[in-house]
């Protein structure tokens, strides 16, 4: 079984070399983590000579037993998910509006949508959240939601537009020729196909949105990242490392789950080999060199700009 067309199935010599290289690699990586663990666990000595316990010392982890800590992290997680869910729904809605405006019959509608889109896509999400917060005095929750929804909506809109553009011309012509208005053709024929085709990219973008809720930190929304720093003020900065590790693990669990769901849906509903439409934009990983795609892994959505 060959994993890749780039090289042959390895012979005995190469296999031996590969095993040696693998073991060497594993030793290096393990050594690095052991060093990291030992350095973190070692007691630290201050500038004034006072020794502090290492990062894995029980005195830094005793807060783990407090229910209040977990309650605060639970609240933070719920706050993050609340913001992400509402922002995601709004982002898809805004994306549909954008893509609708961009494929309008009227040049001026296309132009205006284009300018707004470029503006929204080109500035940092952080600035956008800040903008909504200060200019519309929307409160921390809604400024986070609107900032994220606008920004991600613009990206989803562009993906949908690319999807519509990649459809065969006959789809639109068929719609028009059976007497549908251009708007109905777009809504009933072009858009549903584009949406389905672009679903992997949209879902991947929603993972980015979930990650970016951490930026609502700036407007003091009590989401996960804010929870870390709130707990730090509450419990004292000697627990900083502990709190950071807990936050990191929660974020990883949330985002990896979302990523896996996105990948699962992409594999089930994404464009497939043979069924794929012509001119599918940047469709990768299906019939490419499979330089890296290991067997058994289906379509992976290309990365959206994060």
């Amino acid at each position: 079984m060959s994993l890749s067309v780039l090289y042959d199935a390895p012979g005995p010599k190469t296999r031996r070399w590969s095993v040696i290289a693998s073991i060497g690699g594993i030793i290096l990586i393990v050594a690095f983590f052991v060093w990291m663990y030992l350095t973190l666990a070692a007691p630290r000595v201050n500038a004034n000579g006072a020794a502090q316990p290492g990062m894995f010392d029980p005195s830094r982890w005793d807060i783990v037993a407090l229910p209040d800590l977990w309650l605060s992290f639970l609240n933070g997680t719920v706050a993050t998910l609340q913001m992400a869910a509402v922002a995601a729904a709004l982002a898809i809605l805004i994306g549909i509006l954008f893509s609708f405006g961009r494929s309008s019959r009227y040049a001026w509608v296309r132009a205006i949508t284009g300018v707004i889109l470029e503006f929204v896509r080109g500035i940092p999400v952080l600035l956008m959240i800040f903008f909504v917060f200060l200019v519309f005095t929307a409160g921390s929750y809604w400024s986070g939601v609107f900032g994220l929804a606008l920004y991600n909506g613009a990206i989803i809109g562009e993906a949908l537009r690319a999807g519509v553009k990649s459809l065969p011309r006959g789809q639109r012509e068929a719609g028009l020729s059976v007497g549908l208005t251009p708007m109905k053709t777009w809504a009933l024929i072009e858009f549903p196909q584009a949406f389905r085709q672009m679903l992997p990219i949209i879902l991947a973008q929603l993972v980015v949105l979930l990650k970016d809720t951490s930026l609502a930190f700036i407007v003091s929304y009590p989401e996960l990242a804010r929870t870390i720093s709130l707990n730090r003020t509450f419990f004292g900065s000697r627990y900083m490392f502990t709190l950071f590790v807990i936050g990191l693990v929660i974020y990883l669990a949330l985002n990896l789950t979302m990523s896996w769901i996105a990948r699962f849906v992409a594999r089930r509903s994404g464009p497939r080999l043979g069924k794929a439409l012509p001119n599918t934009p940047r469709q990768t990983g299906i019939d490419g060199t499979r330089a890296i795609t290991l067997p058994g892994r289906g379509f992976e959505p290309p990365d959206p700009p994060h």
């Binding site: 993972v207 990650k211 951490s214 930026l215 990242a225 990191l248």
Partner: peptide, 10 residues
């Protein structure tokens, strides 16, 4: 899968 904010925190 880690927010940039946390990477910078790290």
């Amino acid at each position: 899968n880690v927010p940039l904010l946390l990477v910078l925190m790290f």
